[in-house]
Every structure is written in C-alpha cells, then in structure tokens.
C-alpha cells in the first residue's frame, strides 16, 4: 500500500496539468515499512522528452532526488507520470523501461475530470495494482 496526503496527490496532478499538452513526470520520496510506503515529498521534473506520448525525468533532478533522500534519511520510492488521453495504467513502454522492481509507479490519467491517480508495482513483465491510502 502507498500512503499519500491530499496535498501530495494534488502536487502530482498539478505537475501533470502544468506539463500539458505533454506528459508530466516527477519522483516521489518517502519512507518504506515492509510492503508499505509513505510518500513525504513530491519532486517535479521537466519532461525532457517534451512529448505527449513519452516522458523522461531530467537526469539532474533524478540525481538531486537521490542525493536529498540520502541526506534526509529517505528513499526514492518511485516515479509518477501522466497519460494525457488514456487510462491510468502502465503502457508496455512503461513496463519495459521500469527502472527498479522495488519502486512504486504512479500513473496520473488526465483523460477524465477529476484526474485519476493509481499506483502499481512492476516486476519484470508483471504489473500489480496497489492500494493508495489518502491520509487526511
């Protein structure tokens, strides 16, 4: 399960809306406890692919996120990105290029209003949906 606050969820959605018409993206930092993770920071990134169909997190944002996680005693928990006109589910490209089986992969679909936010684990070719718990 992935624990989020409404503000962090909104920060991801806002990042993705600002990136329109392109896909938006960023990283999530936080703490891990067994199979559960709690997001404490959302790090927005430019989509260096500058595309409505693909995304790539800026390599410098990626490095700084790992550096900050080390300094703050956090983990880089995963990545979020948007699908502008399709459902919130990992595409074959997302699965093929998933960089870390321990990560949480958040999809933000802007196809409908309100935006749909879902989280997945990706290990090899296996995609598993996971529950997002929004803490008030």
């Amino acid at each position: 399960m992935l624990n989020l606050t409404p503000a962090l969820r909104d920060a991801m959605v806002a990042t993705c809306i600002r990136a329109l018409p392109n896909e938006g993206c960023g990283l999530i930092l936080g703490r891990v406890a067994g199979d559960d993770a709690t997001v404490t920071e959302v790090v927005a990134s430019p989509n260096v692919a500058e595309s409505a169909r693909i995304y790539e997190v800026d390599s410098r944002v990626l490095f700084q996120a790992f550096r900050r996680a080390d300094v703050e005693g956090l983990s880089v928990l995963g990545v979020f990105h948007s699908h502008t006109h399709s459902e919130a589910y990992p595409s074959p490209t997302d699965v093929r290029q998933a960089p870390d089986p321990q990560w949480h992969y958040i999809l933000v679909s802007l196809r409908d209003i309100p935006a749909v936010v879902r989280s997945f684990r990706i290990e090899g070719d296996t995609v598993t949906s996971e529950e997002i718990y929004i803490e008030d």
Partner: peptide
C-alpha cells in the same frame, strides 16, 4: 561515480 538508470516511459 553514480550510475542511475534513466527514468522514462510513455504511451507508445
């Protein structure tokens, strides 16, 4: 030296 896989994907 730090090695990090690129974080990328998309609806292709």
């Amino acid at each position: 030296i730090t090695l990090l896989p690129a974080v990328a994907g998309g609806f292709l």
